[in-house]
Nucleic acid binder design. Structure first.
Lengths: 265, 265
DNA sequence: CGTGCGCTTGAGATACTTCAATGCTAGTGG
DNA sequence: CCACTAGCATTGAAGTATCTCAAGCGCACG
């Protein structure tokens, strides 16, 4: 489950700063302090490893720097709902900071590398370090906004819209962290993952994807997706070009929170 | 929109402490300091007043102490999704602490009373006061957990389950704040609200409610609901008795966060 | 006494599911 | 090198949950 652990080297830290705009806003000193205090280390996982397991105690928070994972839960009758898809630049997961018992699991889809922090030390750091405190506030708000967007889609959009939106969101995530410049990227999701993320069956996902393929809008093969007609897909998704920018403005009062009288160490 | 504003009297504060377990965990001194710093006041609204309006700047955070409201957004084609139903004991809304522009509106359904705090001063208080900081962390986590539960329902549950769950959740909310002891309470939602909260049409909501009525499980009339057979409704909702307890354990590290070396004023 | 809003009901349409079968590919053991 | 299996994608046909359209009803309100 954690086959390999090492302190983050300079390269891992560089990757983290590139992938996480919210972290990049921290000073190098703060970041080093945070990593030291939380005993940060790099963990490598194999596909299908569990990062977190439902109902088991949580002792760490991760920042994904390579690979994909899903956060999901399973209902009493066996149906699965994927709550979030984690790609490089996603943390796993702020939620755990408050909860004592988690209703969901997190499982990798591909080999992954992540930077792992001890959760109790992190809570201490949140108490003591304004930059860290602000960081995790912002991450929590990002999560909530994402969940409510998904919620709205499941309630009020149809299959084509939701699938299109999922693809475009993943494209936006890949692009904002610099993993691709063209609308083509690694896509390790199976149709069953798309189904469980959008509340559909795999059969129906298959048919919608076929429509998108027949319309020459995407090709999806061998774990790679290519969006041939971004404008058409945006149209189907009821999205604007600007929605592909995941740039999240610094939260309210960032300046006020950073300029504090407290010690940062 | 805000026809009447006054400083919270002792009665309002008592109500707040009774309705909000998270606030009740704060000391009287901390609560007084918080109210003083954030210029807390009581605001009364009429039905259909806007508490927050999409895309308009947010200057205040509210804690609802009487009446009902909805938080919702409207898609480009006019379909509406209700994100949350606010009853006494709900705050409106932590989300706004980070966001600079909100994608949703909040509107009252009935006459309401709420305690309103200035948002910039609140951010300051969050910075300075550990109890306040912890309070709003916990509220944000509550929000996220609720959103993901709703999300899962919309993705993977059917109409009967979702409507049953909504009714039972509202019952649990009324009960935990002491507004009812029996499974019967004021229910100002129209069928169109139930529809927009569960992702259905009013026509279909009507038919499901009729089934519940025919099965002698509920009666719903004149703004009052009565649940005659709680067990049957729980069964339909795929819920257990324990799910009616909204008791939320104190979040991780509460003790550690409260026991801090910082000044609380 | 009209007008509007919400509730109710029927009939027909459709988006999505269920069931079932087939094929493809990669991995595994012989 | 081949047979066998498992997982995933694909497709057809039939079923069903939910929607759309349309009409009528009751009640509150001006």
């Amino acid at each position: 489950m954690t086959p390999n652990e090492l302190y983050p080297d300079a390269d891992a830290i560089t990757q983290l700063r590139r992938l996480f705009p919210r972290f990049a806003a921290m000073s190098t000193g703060d970041l080093e302090t945070l990593f030291h205090r939380t005993d940060a280390r790099v963990v490598e996982d194999q596909p299908r490893d569990f990062v977190l397991r439902k109902d088991q105690p949580v002792s760490e928070i991760s920042c994904l720097i390579s690979g994909w994972a899903i956060r999901y839960l399973v209902l009493s009758d066996g149906r699965r709902q994927i709550l979030a898809i984690k790609t490089p630049g996603s943390y796993v997961c702020v939620h755990a900071l408050c909860a004592t018992h988690l209703p969901f699991s997190v499982q990798t889809l591909t080999p992954t590398r992540r930077i792992v922090m001890n959760i109790d030390s992190l809570v201490d750091a949140i108490r003591d370090m304004p930059a860290v405190r602000q960081l995790f506030y912002a991450l929590g708000c990002d999560d909530l906004a994402g969940a409510e967007e998904t919620l709205t889609g499941l309630g009020r959009r149809d299959a084509t819209q939701n699938i299109s939106r999922l693809i475009l969101k993943l494209y936006a995530m890949q692009r904002t962290v610099g993993l691709t410049t063209r609308p083509a990227f690694d896509f390790p999701l199976r149709q069953t993952h798309i189904a469980d993320a959008t509340g559909l069956t795999t059969v129906h996902v298959n048919r919608i994807l076929r429509q998108l393929r027949n319309a020459q809008i995407i090709t999806l093969d061998k774990g790679m997706i290519e969006i041939h007609d971004v404008d058409a897909l945006l149209e189907l998704a009821d999205m604007a070009h600007g929605d592909l920018e995941l740039y999240s403005p610094l939260p309210r009062g960032w300046d006020r929170l950073m300029a504090t009288n407290e010690s940062t160490d």
